[in-house]
């Protein structure tokens, strides 16, 4: 059993004035991006926990939507529902809020790497705050969280007092050379709460990624690696004049091979565009 990703989408977004889940993000939405970032980090097992009756934007077909039937209990209730749903499938979960537009898969992986057999929760302490909504939890905590809720607890941080929590401070996080290279400011935990936050974040340029075309795609002076700015695989393909059709695929960081134009890109990504007509 591995890890799952859980995105809590049920917040009221009262300070934002509009549902954060539906905020536009480079042709998609903030929720879809967050879910897809978790897919990149933990594999395809990602769920979104939503509030009763909450309308969600379009999500990838393989993202599971879980209904939280209790209203008004805050994110801790979402954590409880998510962990309870996941506990038969996975030992660990990375739980996060919707509003982390710069969440990096390397951050998620570093947090999950913090688990040992004695640890129940791995929680970053970064950018001046404890980050229980960008943290790892053992799914077996589900009954504990339910008991805390029943006892009136409402803040996720209270979970951390009731279990063995491993804290990751900034120095520890950035001791991971891969994370330090791609997210040196730990922007992964930079959240957005008010319209100004969103406007500032959205105005930032897309992440820089390296792209390279191979084989016949590299003819006519197209050889060699290039650095471009692109928020999605589709944007990257467009930037190098390629269409991801039946004859062209992309390899993301030498691993995942895909034609999914909506795959979110992050700083440091390396894309190889290949002929899909492999072999010979």
């Amino acid at each position: 059993m591995g890890a799952v990703g859980i995105v809590l989408s049920g917040g009221r977004s009262s300070r934002m004035g509009a549902p954060k889940a539906c905020l536009e993000w480079h042709g998609s939405t903030l929720l879809a991006r967050t879910a897809r970032i978790l897919q990149r980090a933990v594999g395809q097992r990602v769920m979104v926990v939503r509030a009763p009756g909450q309308q969600l934007p379009e999500l990838p077909a393989d993202v599971e939507v879980v209904d939280d039937e209790e209203e008004g209990l805050g994110p801790m209730q979402g954590v409880a529902v998510g962990l309870a749903t996941a506990q038969d499938d996975a030992e660990l979960a990375f739980v996060c809020s919707t509003d982390l537009p710069f969440l990096h898969p390397a951050f998620v992986e570093r947090v999950l790497d913090g688990f040992t057999s004695e640890v129940d929760a791995v929680v970053p302490h970064a950018r001046g705050h404890r980050q229980p909504l960008a943290a790892g939890y053992r799914t077996a905590l589900a009954p504990t969280v339910a008991e805390l809720l029943a006892a009136g607890a409402r803040k996720p941080a209270m979970i951390l007092d009731a279990c063995h929590t491993h804290w990751l401070d900034e120095a520890t996080l950035l001791a991971d050379p891969r994370l330090a290279a791609v997210d040196p400011q730990l922007e992964s935990v930079r959240n957005i709460n008010v319209p100004e936050d969103y406007e500032l974040a959205r105005a930032e340029p897309p992440p820089q990624v390296t792209v390279e075309r191979f084989g016949t795609l590299a003819r006519n002076g197209q050889r060699g690696a290039r650095t471009i700015e692109a928020a999605t695989l589709g944007q990257a393909a467009q930037a190098v004049d390629l269409v991801l059709d039946q004859h062209v695929v992309a390899a993301l960081n030498g691993e995942r091979i895909t034609r999914d134009t909506q795959v979110p890109l992050v700083r440091g990504d390396q894309l190889a565009f290949l002929s899909a007509d492999a072999g010979g």
Binding site: F214, G215, A251
Partner: peptide, 10 residues
């Protein structure tokens, strides 16, 4: 043309 592509994907 497989060679460099296969190298890129290990």
């Amino acid at each position: 043309s497989n060679l460099l592509a296969f190298n890129a994907i290990n």
